[in-house]
Amino acid sequence: MCLGIPGCIVSIVDADAMLASVDVSGVRRTVDVVCVAEPGRSLDELVGAWVLVHVGFAMSLIDEEEAAATLKVLHEIGEAQSEIEAMRTGSVEPFHPSTTH
């Protein structure tokens, strides 16, 4: 359900029609930015913003701070685990993807 992908707004295509160009890894698509535009502010302020694109619509402004906070938590989980492992075994065990089955 609902394939969505992060992209960066690179230019405003038509301010009156609320259309902007979004770049996803070098692939561009014109998208509707009504849902991420702040009423009363110039669309130009959106250039450089990262948005979640779904079927040609920017549906959410990606919150850089929240992303960083999530990653920080993830790194802490990793580090805490490494420490526990280190205490238990005296060394940090490398991660081996399973190769059997």
Binding site: M1, C2, D32, C35, H54, F57, M59
Partner: peptide, 11 residues
């Protein structure tokens, strides 16, 4: 589609 896609059709 669900609520994700609903706004795009409405808009």
């Amino acid at each position: 589609g669900f609520e994700t896609t609903m706004p795009s059709t409405a808009l």
